[in-house]
Amino acid sequence: MTVRVDGVDYEFSSLEEAVRFALKMAKSKGAEVQLHNGTFHVE
């Protein structure tokens, strides 16, 4: 599972870890999280 934040990809071994990271980053940026074909994008 890959989480992309500001064009940088972060790899996670589990969906749970990836979701937690994506939500944490989105909250800190006041951004939204989108899921596309198994890849999260924080914008």
Rank of each mutant, 00 (worst) to 15 (best):
A31R: 08
E11C: 15
L15N: 06
L15K: 10
A22V: 04
R20F: 07
V19E: 09
V42G: 06
L15Q: 10
D6M: 05
A22C: 15
F40I: 12
D6E: 07
V5R: 01
E43V: 15
V19C: 15
E16R: 11
S14N: 09
V3I: 04
G38Y: 07
D9F: 10
F21L: 01
L35V: 08
G7I: 02
G38V: 06
A31H: 09
A18W: 02
E43P: 08
V3L: 02
M25F: 04
D6L: 06
K29L: 14
L15E: 07
H41L: 12
H41S: 05
Q34D: 04
M25T: 06
L23G: 02
A18P: 00
F12S: 00
S14V: 05
L35R: 03
V8H: 06
L23R: 08
F12L: 01
E16A: 10
V19K: 09
R4W: 06
T39E: 07
S28I: 15
A31Y: 13
A18N: 00
L15G: 04
N37Y: 10
L15I: 12
D9S: 11
S14K: 04
S13T: 11
A26Q: 06
A26M: 09
D9A: 09
S28V: 14
N37H: 09
K24I: 11
L35N: 04
L35E: 05
G30W: 08
H36T: 07
T39F: 10
V33K: 02
K24Y: 14
K27S: 15
L23Y: 13
D9R: 07
E11W: 14
G7V: 01
V3W: 02
T39N: 07
E32P: 06
H36A: 07
E43R: 10
N37L: 10
N37T: 06
T2H: 08
A26N: 03
R4S: 06
S14A: 03
Y10M: 02
V5S: 02
L15T: 11
M1V: 12
H36C: 15
E32T: 14
V19F: 14
A18V: 02
M25Y: 05
F12T: 00
L23A: 07
G7D: 05
N37W: 06
V5A: 03
F40C: 15
